[in-house]
Structures are given as C-alpha cells and as structure tokens.
Design a protein around this nucleic acid. Structure first.
Length: 934
DNA sequence: GTACTCACG
DNA sequence: GACGTACGTGAGTACG
C-alpha cells in the first residue's frame, strides 16, 4: 500500500518517552535478577496506552517510534558546545535503552534511529515525506523543537497532556506561524540545548521582531532600523552567532534513512512475541492487561525472591510503613503534571475524592488525592475555604495555595477517562458519581472494596478502615478527628489544608496498598471472574441508576401524611380510653406494662433489657381477647407508614431534580444482594392495601410510564435446579402454580380441588425450605402446633428427597470449606458453621439459603449489566432494583418494546455461564405509577 | 449506641 | 434432653 492521501502517519518521539518514563517512576528492578526496568515498564505502558487510544476512525495507518542514537550528531561538528550542558545518562537508565528498542519491536512497531542524527531529524524527514505524499502526520511529542514541522497536514500530540498542537497552538507558544519558528528559536536561543541565540532576547521579543521584519535574514540585514539601541546593537554584534543558532535548531528533513513510508504500515502485534517480551521483563500487570486485550491467557510469571522486588509487580507486597509526613500537597499545575506523568508511566493510579458530604448527589468536590505506589501519594486541595478572619470575605473565601478547580479538572479529566490507565478506588461508585457531576466519566476502574467482597463476603466488612486494619495493620486517621461529630460537625472544605492533606493522601495510599495486596489474592481465591463479571461492571450501572433517580410526587405523600396523622390521633384517643390512662403508644415498654401488668393479659415476654416486648404476632393473638391490641396494631401500621414513608420520603426529594436518589451498596449483603439506603427503596410497602398506595407517589415524568419486570418464583426455580427436584422442575416447565402443585404433591389433593388454605401452607413450606426450614419456624409462621409443622416437613422431604440431600451436602461443604458458593462461583463464607452453640444453627440455615438467594442475586446482576446495551437507543432508563424486580421509566410509545427487550435480557441472564434446567419467567407491567406498574 | 419493631424480597 | 431457630436487608423510635 503506497502511502498517500487518506493515510495517517504517527511518529513517536521514543527518546522523550523513555526519559519521561524514567523520571516519572521510582527505580524499579526486575525481581529475578535486579535489572533496572522502571523506564522500560513506563515506556511499554505509554506505548500500550497510545495504541489503545488510537483505535477510532482517526487511527494511524502507518507508524514508527523514533530514537536518538548516541550523543554525537552533525550539530556537534558545527558547534562543539551543542547540548554540552546535558547531564550524562544515569547509570541505571543505560542498560534499559536497548530494551526499549526491543519493546518497540515486540509491539510490532517500526523502530528507527540513525547514526549522527537526532530523532527529530528523522521525524522531520518522514513528516515531510508524508506531507508531500498528500497524507497526514501526527508527531507524538511535546518537544518545542519539533513545532517547526507543524502545518500542511502535520500536527503534534502531547500524549501526557492529551493535547493536540496545530499551527494555532504553535503560534500560541512562539508568537509566529510554524514556518518562522526556527527564526524565533535562533534569536531566543535555548539554555536546555545550549543554543546561544541573541543575549537578552527571549521568545516574546524574538516573535515581535520576526513579525515586524518578516524573517530572520531580513531582520539581521536591516538590524540598524531597530529602534531600541541595546536590541539593535545585540543583533549587529551577534549576527553570526544567531545564524549559527538557526542552523542548529533547523531540523534536517533530508536524512539518509533507509526506510520508506510504505515500510511503516501499522501491523497487529504478534501476541506470542509481545507476551514473551513482557513476561521476560516480568511485568505482571501489563502482561495480564495486554493478554486480556488480545483475548489470550496471560502467561504465568514465576514468583521469585521478593527481596529487591519492584513494588508494582511483586506478588507478596513488600511495602514501606505508612508515613503521613511524606505526602505532597499539590498546589499548582506544574506539580500536578508531575503526578499525572507518574500515573501514566505506571499505567495505574489510586484515587480518592474528598467532598462536603456523604451524599454523592449533593456533595461538592473539595480535593482529590492520588497514589502511584505505596507511600507515593499526594493531595490536591481544590475548594478549601479560608479560615474565618483570613481574607476580606471571612469564611467564604477560598484558602490560599490551591490550584483552580477548573484547571485541575481539565488536567485530570483525560487521565481519569484514559481507557488504558487503571483507576484504583475504594468504594468506586461514590467517587464515580461525584466526578460524573463534574462531567468526568471515570474508567476503567478497580475497586478494592469489591475485591475484598468477592474474596471475603461473610468474613468481615469491606470499608476502608476495616480493610486497612486487617490487611495493612494500620489505622487510618478517623474522619472525626478532622470534622468532629454531631452538632459541631464541619464540612471537609472547612478543614485546614495542612490537616486535610495527610488524611486524604493516606486514603489514596491505603487504597493503593490494598489493591496491591488483593490483586494476587483474587486469582488464588478463584474469584477473578466473579469480581470482573458480577461486581466491578455493576459500578457504572448503579451510578447511572442512582443519578437518574425516580420521580416522587410530594403532594400525594403530603396528603397521605395528613390523613394518617388524623387517623392516628383518633386511634390514640381510643387506646388511651381502653387503657384507662394516657401513655406513649409508641413505647413497647409502656404498652407492655399496660397489657401484661395492668390488664393482666397472657403471653407477656421480656426482652434482653428486662422490658416487655410486644411484637405484632403477640398482639394479634391478644386481639381476640381485647380491643386494645388491635387498635395498637392499626396505630403502629399507620405510624410506620407515616414516619418511614410518607414523611421521610419527602425529605429525600432532591431540590434540583425533584426526584429521589437512593444509594445501593454493592458489598452490603453477604449473599450478593444489593442493599438500598438513603432512602431504602427496596422496602416500599405493597403487602397491605393502605401501604401499597404509597407506591402511587412514585410516578413517571409526563409523557412517560413506569415499567416493572420481575422474576417469577426465581428462588424456588433455582432450588429446583440446584437440588435437582424433578417434580418441581416439571411443574415449572408446565407453568403450574408452584405452591398449588407442591400442596397437591404433599397432601394428595388434586389441583382442581385445591383450597386456598392448603395452598397457603404449601407456600409457607416452600419458603421455609429456602430459608433452612425448622419445625419451630414453620410452626410459628403457620401458627400451628410444632409437631404438626414437623409432620409437614417430614412429608415434604419424603415427597422431594433431593431437598434433604441438598441441605446435607451444603452443610457438609460449608463445614469442610468454610464457605458455600452460588452457581456463578460467588463465595459466601460461613465462619460460624463449626461453632458450638446456637450460632451454628444460624450459620447452618444461612448456608442453606445463601447459594439460592445468592444465585438469584447473581442472575439479576448479570441482567442489569447487560441491560444498558440491550435497551440502547430506546428512550428508557433503568431506575430501581428490588432483588427480583427491575423498574424502568420509558416514553409511553416505547414501553412495549422495552418490555420485550428487557424481558429477553432478564430471562436469559444466566446464559451462557449457567444453563438452568428450569425455565426463567419474567412478569411485566406498566402504568403511570409504581402501584400500577407492579 | 442498643433494642425493638416493621417495611420489603 | 434442653436450647433456640425460619433467610437477607434498612430505618424510625424509644431509652439509657
């Protein structure tokens, strides 16, 4: 393919990459033999990122990486002081130079260098050829010496700042068009390259002069016309030095290279060659990442002696102790750029955001901390307020010594969105949501909280403090130490920067260390797939659902609140009348006194605190003997509905969106279920008619409808599959009423003669089985004698013998391994299973339940993760998840299409990982509000 | 902060 | 033989 119009050449300034990588990274060494490889590692990361970032329609058709060769060039023959002030190459960099050439070839990129010439000259030559052939050329470099080449289809790209530089960009830098850049450089000189130029003339003055006289030669010839005497004399006295300078800065675009553009066509890397090289270098992270990208198995890199290991790649982390004094406070763009370079050269960075509150929908960004290695962390304060008394406007002015929020975010956005830079976070959803409000879509991510959850669900919590203490033996600064608690609590922007920095940077440092600790463990625990397919991908999905929120009609709630209040007042009066005295109906202790002491009713039991307990089932029994308990039950129901729902929900309506935004905790429930908080939208009433009406307040926006899809009997279907109960499977395949079918099987009643009471009992047993049934529990639930309940259970086991086998097998597995698993490999630990005492009973039943509940949770997670792509293009939004239900909001006309597509996703969610031998059925509904839709 | 109660799946 | 039990959650209120 002859290079020409429509082709796009990328030229990478390889030597610049090497130096940037070398200075950005700590001195890493290869674990097996101590060979310094930091620069090679950074170089490979940068090349990999560049390739990843260039996959679109603008992708290069041709590319080469260009290097300097040796330190002597033709310019030294002209001027022996050229680049004479350059420091010698560091000793630990020298052996890495040939490795970077090898790396380039391993990526299947052309690798160019030429004796006696600089990389810049080769770049100039190829750029000219590309231009002349009518194609485009992008020079990946930020070196100003290359700016003279810009124009006519040639542009530069600063890979670190993610910035394109065209002719306008060059003019911004030099004050002249690209073709006059060398004139300005000749006059201004360059202390870095030791170009003498004209003493006393800088870029500004040089540009002024060139623009006035047209070009350098004209200027020098007409120097006597320059009005300023000093400037005039300089130009006359140093004319030859200036002409020499111009020769030195002018790139040679006729170098005798032995390749043509056609030789530089972009080729796919040979997976084997590339992975072999990366493995040889012992780059664990990068090898894995690239292998994943190529869709091949990552070759194993043997663990060798950890002494002298380079931190990023070591299996058993050897980390320096946490030193809060070592963190940097980043206060300007230059300092931030150093950290960005470090992150890019590393290929991964730990991040933590500090905000004014815990609610991601309303909290504002106060600062960001970064870590690029254990102990290598900084804090970037952004919107800390000045202390009271400081500055003219007292407490509302910003504190000194912070870079502007906009500038910092502009610099960080390309980094946070860089597809080949891994962002490591603890509870990533929080930061992802906060940053989304600033127009930043953080990706890709790793989440240490979810890594811990995938490995250790059931063993302990997964908050940062718990993880730091357990895995790092370190207690991070409690946030209370900074912001206090209770009434006197302040927001984080009121914390002094000096105090905030150690806290904030420590969190990024701890996150980095946790990641380093967990990453190798994940694989060993065989939960990598769980983490990568069930945990991590849920973060952006939930973030979007939470940010969308659901519209709640305040007036509906408000009216209900008033109605409840009136009814409650009436009931309260009746209750006091019946009791013969006034007391707090909401106090179980006081109510107990009235019922069991004053009125002498039976069944009074005291709780741990020696007070009477008055749960609903006890009051229900008492209701047959007296009017009062029934009234209390009614009052309690109203009280619950009012305080928890109609009142509290109004407080959660967001001022700006008019919607309610819950927060789902991904690692809250041990079984894999989500948990909804602030507010909990997974327990909105439905079982009673009065409570159900609260769902009428959850509405669709005008012109839209709510659509609800829920799995029918998913846990029983999973039980039928896991335990292999043929009769149940058959009933599900035939679409029978499963509880009626169970009753028929157990009691021998034909389906057409089934009574609702028998069906109800069978239903209770079916649920009981899922929960790890006991005679006592079933007896209490059905309000029947324990012996009778036990009889039901015995009969059930008799009719469905596989159930008993499943329970025994699960228990044995838990006892042996300390955990149980879902069909998708999720582990739920059962540390109490071998304990003595009642704890073992709890653990046993939890172990029975966990694989069933957890498998159902996995299935709906898979559905949610796939849902966005499936409904892409529809005017529909996924809003809520309630364990077996997904709630959507959609334009009226598209509801049926949505239902069809979402149902397909939900019903097929187990595939292809698991093939259930029961059908999965999803019911759907739609309406103006949640009550109608469900 | 803990206990009790109750809303959901 | 006694003990204590349905599984998983979150939140509001009372009370010390």
């Amino acid at each position: 393919m002859a290079f020409g119009k429509g082709h796009h050449l990328h030229l990478v300034d390889g030597s610049a990459f090497i130096f940037r990588a070398y200075h950005a990274l700590p001195p890493l060494t290869r674990k097996s033999d101590g060979l310094p490889i930091g620069a090679v590692s950074g170089f490979c990361n940068m090349i990999h990122r560049m390739i990843e970032a260039n996959t679109g329609p603008d992708a290069p058709t041709h590319a080469a990486v260009v290097f300097d060769k040796g330190s002597h060039t033709f310019r030294n023959d002209m001027y022996d002081l050229y680049k004479a002030n350059r420091e010698a190459m560091p000793e630990d960099l020298r052996p890495q130079i040939p490795l970077t050439r090898e790396a380039t070839r391993a990526f299947n990129l052309a690798c160019l260098e030429l004796e006696n010439y600089e990389a810049d000259d080769i770049i100039a030559t190829l750029a000219r050829q590309a231009r002349e052939a009518g194609g485009r050329c992008t020079i990946i470099s930020s070196d100003k010496d290359l700016m003279q080449l810009v124009g006519g289809g040639v542009e530069m790209f600063d890979a670190m700042k993610n910035l394109r530089i065209d002719a306008d960009g060059v003019e911004e830098k030099f004050g002249v068009r690209p073709d006059r850049v060398v004139d300005v450089q000749a006059l201004a000189g360059d202390s870095v390259d030791n170009i003498p130029g004209a003493p006393g003339i800088g870029i500004k003055t040089a540009a002024l002069l060139i623009n006035e006289f047209g070009d350098l030669e004209t200027l020098l010839q007409r120097a006597d016309e320059v009005p300023q005497p000093k400037r005039r004399q300089t130009l006359i006295d140093f004319a030859e030095q200036i002409r020499l300078s111009k020769k030195l800065v002018t790139l040679d675009d006729r170098t005798p290279i032995d390749v043509t553009l056609d030789d530089l066509e972009v080729l796919e890397p040979d997976a084997q060659v590339l992975l072999e090289f990366l493995t040889k270098m012992e780059f664990r992270t990068l090898t894995k990442r690239i292998a994943d990208g190529l869709g091949v198995e990552a070759p194993a890199i043997p663990d060798t002696d950890p002494r002298g290991a380079e931190p990023a790649e070591s299996g058993a982390p050897q980390m320096p102790p946490i030193d809060r004094g070592a963190y940097e406070v980043v206060r300007d763009a230059q300092a931030l750029q150093v950290w960005i370079d470090r992150a890019l050269a590393r290929g991964e960075v730990a991040i933590d955001t500090e905000t004014t509150g815990l609610n991601e929908m309303t909290a504002d960004l106060v600062g960001i901390s970064l870590a690029t290695g254990p102990g290598v962390a900084c804090y970037i304060p952004l919107t800390h307020k000045a202390e009271a008394g400081e500055g003219l406007f007292g407490g509302d002015a910003l504190a000194e010594g912070q870079m502007g929020l906009d500038q910092a975010l502009a610099m960080l956005k390309p980094v946070l969105e860089d597809a080949s830079l891994l962002k490591i976070l603890q509870n990533a959803k929080y930061d992802v949501k906060v940053l989304a409000r600033y127009g930043i879509e953080v990706a890709p991510i790793d989440d240490t909280m979810l890594m811990s959850y995938a490995m250790n669900a059931g063993l302990h919590g997964h908050g940062m403090d718990a993880l730091a203490e357990r895995y790092l033996g370190h207690m991070p600064i409690p946030i209370k130490d900074l912001i206090g608690s209770g009434k006197s609590q302040i927001t984080f922007d009121r914390v002094k920067i000096e105090d905030a920095a150690p806290y904030a940077a420590e969190d990024a440092d701890v996150t980095w260390r946790l990641w380093q600790t967990f990453k190798p463990q994940l694989h060993r625990a065989r939960v990598t797939t769980v983490y990568e397919t069930l945990e991590r991908p849920l973060v952006p999905v939930l973030a979007r659902m939470e940010r969308a929120g659901i519209k709640v009609d305040r007036d509906v709630l408000s009216r209900m609140s008033n109605a409840f209040a009136q009814k409650m007042a009436g009931l309260e009066a009746e209750i006091h009348e019946l009791a013969g005295e006034a007391f707090n109906v909401g106090s179980p202790a006081q109510l107990g006194e009235i019922l069991f002491e004053k009125m002498g009713l039976p069944g009074g039991e005291k709780g741990k605190t020696g007070k009477y307990a008055t749960p609903a089932d006890v009051l229900e029994d008492l209701a047959t003997e007296h009017d009062l308990p029934g009234r209390v039950l009614d009052w309690r129901q109203l009280s619950k509905l009012k305080s928890t729902y109609t009142d509290a929900l109004q407080e959660h309506i967001n001022r700006d969106t008019g919607r309610v935004h819950t927060s789902y905790s991904i690692a809250g429930a041990n079984t894999g279920r989500l948990a909804s908080t602030d507010p909990n939208l997974q327990n909105i009433p439905i079982r009673t008619e009065e409570g159900r009406r609260i769902r009428e307040a959850f509405v669709a926006a005008p012109g839209r409808v709510l659509v609800s899809l829920d799995y029918s009997q998913i846990e029983l279907r999973i039980l039928a599959h896991i335990a292999g109960i043929d009769a149940l499977k058959q009933a599900f395949r035939e679409g029978q009423d499963i509880h009626a079918a169970t009753a028929s099987e157990m009691f021998g009643v034909p389906l057409d003669q089934m009574t609702s009471d028998v069906r109800r009992q069978a239903k209770a047993i079916n649920f009981g089985v899922i929960y790890g049934i006991s005679g006592f529990g079933l007896a209490r639930n059905l309000r029947i004698p324990r012996a009778e309940a036990q009889g039901f259970i015995d009969r059930y086991f008799e009719r469905f013998p596989g159930i008993k086998d499943y329970m025994e097998a699960t228990k044995a597995f838990a006892k042996q391994h300390g955990y149980v698993q879902t069909l998708f490999g999720r582990k739920i630990h059962t540390p109490e299973i071998n304990a003595k005492g009642p704890g073992a009973g709890f653990a046993y039943r939890a172990a029975i339940n966990a694989p069933i509940q957890g498998t159902a949770a996995d299935i709906i997670r898979r559905a949610m993760i796939r849902m966005e792509a499936a409904i892409d293009g529809l005017p529909a939004t996924m809003l809520l998840q309630v364990h077996d239900e997904l709630l959507f909001e959609v334009d009226e006309g598209a509801a049926d299409t949505l239902i069809a597509r979402a149902r397909d996703v939900m019903e097929g969610a187990a595939h292809p990982a698991v093939h259930l031998d029961v059908p999965i059925v999803v019911d759907a509904g739609q309406g103006a509000n949640w009550a109608e839709a469900h």
